[in-house]
Design a binder for these strands. Structure first.
Lengths: 342, 342
DNA sequence: CTGAAAGCGCTAACAT
DNA sequence: ATGTTAGCGCTTTCAG
C-alpha cells in the first residue's frame, strides 16, 4: 500500500532509491546507458512505491505525446472496429498509442473532436473520409508537421496521405457483375444518410455503370436510422410491393441485405433465380445466413493497418510517405445470391 | 494560411492581439472576467492565426487533464459500443472526455492499458468487470484521488463504485423462466472464453437454478473464437447430433443464438414447440430474425450512462457517490422462442 | 479587469 | 555512467 500523496513523482522515486531524478527518468524510459545495478535499485523503488510516470509532464518536456488521433464516424457500424484493430496491430510495437474519436457522421462533431485531439499534439492523424467542413480541412492543412492519413475512400483530394478503396468503382463493379449475370430490373436499397459520402459514391458508381449499359435503376428506397435486420426486411417488403417486377436488389450494406434475404426466403421467393441480392462490406455474418450473400470486401483491416504504418514510418523519418496514396482493391464475393439467370 | 512555426503558442496570440498571455489564457478558457472588447480582440487573433491550445501544457499547469479512462474488453462485441455511447452522452456537457482502451479480454493487456491510462492522470476510470490481476487491482486501489467505476457486473468486490447487473441472477432468471414453461432437457451453448467472467457467471447462475429444481444440464458445448452466426449454426448442429432429445437451447449470446435459430428453421424444426431457444443481450438484430429470439436485456446504455454520471459527480464534489453500488435489473423478452410447451 | 512571477513534473542538452 | 541546468506552454496565485 502506498502513502497518501498519490500520485507520486520522479522525485519520490529518486529519494527512495538514492539515485538522481535524471537517472531515474532514464531507467524508466528504458534507456540502456544506465548501470545494471542502478537500474535495479530504481526499478525496485518504483515498483514498491507504485509509481506511475506522469506522461503529461513527459510529453510537455519532450514535445512528443506519442498519440495518434483516430477519427471515425461510428462504432456501431462493425466496419470501424475492424479498422481500429488494423491500426492497433500496426501501432502495437511502435510506442505510438491510438486515441479514438467518434463523430456520428456529423461535420460539426468532427470539427470539435479534431480540435480537441489536435490540442493534445498527436504525432499523427488518421481520419475517415475526404469530405469535411472547411474549418476541419484548414486544421488538417495547418498541421503540416505531422502525418495526416485520410482513410476508407480515395475518390477525392486528400490533404496528405490517403488509404482506401474507390467506392465509385466498387459501385460500378457490382453493377457490371449484376448486368453480366443477366439481371435487368434492378432496385437499390440504401439508408438515408446524406453525410455518408462513401455510400453515396457507391450509389453514383452503380447508377453510372448501369447507365452505360443503357439501364436505369428501376426503383429505389431509402430508410433513415439504423441499418439493422428489421430495417432491411421492411425496406424489402416496401420496394417489392411497389415494384413487384424487380429481379435484383442492391443494398448499401450487408446488415440491411441480410434482413432482406431473410424476408425473401420467408416469402418463399427463390434466390437467386427469382431475385438476386447483393450487399456491401463482407461482414462476417454473411457466412452464417441461410444463403451466402453476394457482397464486396471493403478491406477494412488492411486500411487501418496500412494507414497506421504510414503514420509510424513518418514519425521515424519526417518525410517518408508524404502524400502517399494507397488504393486497395475490393473483391466481390458472389455467394449464392448473384448468379447467372437461367 | 498560417506561418510555418506551427503549432502556435499563447505567446503568439498574445503578440498578435496586444493582450497579455494571461488574459489570452483567460479568454480561451471561457472565463467571464474579461472585458468584452479584449475578448473580441483575442478571439479574432486566435482564429485568424489558427491557434489550437496545447492541452498538455494546460493539463500540467492545472493538474487536471479532464480525461476519463474507459477500459473495455472488446469493440466487436456490439455490447461495448452501446456502453460507450451511454458514457459519451453523460459526459458530453461536462468538459470531461472519454479515452477508450481495449483489452481483448487479456489481463496482461488490461494491466498495460491501465498503466498507460493512469499515466495521463485521468479524472476518473470506468473499467469493465470486477476480476483482474493483482497488479491491476493495486493500481486501482492506489488511485484513491479519483473515482473508479467498475461496470457490467455486480457479483464481486468492487474497488470503489460499481454499476451493472448480476449475471448470476440473469442466468437464474432465464433458467426459472425456461423451467416454468415446461422445458426439461436443456442444453447450453457458449463460446469458450475462460476470461469472460460474466458469461461464466451467467452459466453458474443458470445451472444452480436448474439444480434447485432437481435438473441438470443435459448437454453443453463450447466453441472458441468469434461469436458469429456461422459458429452458432455449427454448435447447434453438433449438440443436436450428440443429444437429439434436447428441448431447449440456452446460448451465451444473441449472435450465436441467431445462428442457431436460422439453422433450426432450415432443418424444419418447429420453434418453440419442438425446441425452445434463448440468447443474451437483446441485440437489435433479434428484431429482424424470422422468429423473435427470447433474450435478456443487459442494460448496456444505462450502465455506461450511470457510470459516467458517477464519475462526473465525483469530479465536482470529491466525495459524492464514493463506493456507490448500482444494480440494474435486466428484463427478459420471451419473443417467439420461449413459450409454454403444449 | 489585467498583469507578473512562479512552477506543474518531466526531459534535452550539456556537463562531469 | 551519472548529475546539473534550463526550460516545455500553460495556469495558479497574488498584486495592482
Amino acid at each position: 500500500m502506498t502513502r497518501d500523496p498519490y500520485p507520486l513523482t520522479l522525485r519520490d522515486v529518486s529519494a527512495a532509491s538514492g539515485v538522481s531524478e535524471m537517472t531515474v527518468s532514464r531507467v524508466l524510459r528504458g534507456r540502456r546507458d544506465v548501470a545494471a545495478e542502478t537500474r535495479e535499485k530504481v526499478l525496485q523503488a518504483a515498483k514498491t512505491l507504485g509509481y506511475v510516470p506522469n506522461k503529461i509532464a513527459g510529453a510537455l518536456a519532450s514535445q512528443r505525446a506519442n498519440l495518434v488521433a483516430v477519427i471515425i464516424p461510428s462504432l456501431s457500424n462493425l466496419v470501424f472496429p475492424e479498422v481500429l484493430s488494423g491500426i492497433s496491430d500496426a501501432l502495437d510495437e511502435t510506442g505510438l498509442q491510438p486515441v479514438v474519436g467518434v463523430t456520428n457522421y456529423l461535420p460539426e462533431r468532427e470539427e470539435k473532436i479534431l480540435y480537441e485531439m489536435l490540442s493534445w499534439r498527436p504525432s499523427g492523424v488518421i481520419i475517415a473520409g475526404l469530405e469535411r467542413s472547411s474549418v476541419s480541412h484548414a486544421m488538417l492543412k495547418n498541421a503540416t508537421k505531422i502525418p495526416i492519413v485520410e482513410i476508407m475512400d480515395v475518390d477525392g483530394e486528400p490533404v496528405d496521405a490517403v488509404v482506401g478503396i474507390s467506392h465509385r468503382r466498387a459501385g460500378r463493379m457490382m453493377a457490371e457483375e449484376i448486368l453480366k449475370n443477366g439481371y435487368k430490373k434492378i432496385g437499390f436499397l440504401g439508408t438515408q444518410m446524406p453525410l455518408d459520402h462513401r455510400a453515396r459514391k457507391r450509389f453514383e458508381g452503380f447508377t453510372s455503370a448501369l447507365a452505360k449499359a443503357g439501364i436505369e435503376i428501376a426503383d429505389q428506397i431509402f430508410y433513415s436510422q439504423s441499418s439493422a435486420f428489421a430495417k432491411g426486411r421492411d425496406m424489402t417488403r416496401a420496394i417489392l410491393e411497389r415494384s413487384p417486377d424487380l429481379d435484383f436488389l442492391y443494398y448499401s450494406n450487408d446488415m440491411i441485405a441480410a434482413g432482406g434475404l431473410l424476408y425473401l426466403l420467408e416469402q418463399g421467393i427463390d434466390l437467386p433465380t427469382q431475385i438476386g441480392l447483393a450487399g456491401f462490406n463482407k461482414l462476417e455474418l454473411v457466412e452464417g445466413l441461410p444463403r451466402k450473400l453476394a457482397t464486396m470486401d471493403a478491406c477494412r483491416y488492411e486500411i487501418g493497418k496500412k494507414a497506421a504504418e504510414i503514420v509510424a514510418l513518418r514519425c521515424e523519418d519526417g518525410n517518408a510517405q508524404r502524400g502517399q496514396s494507397v488504393t486497395l482493391q475490393p473483391s466481390i464475393s458472389l455467394g449464392d445470391t448473384l448468379k447467372r439467370r437461367p
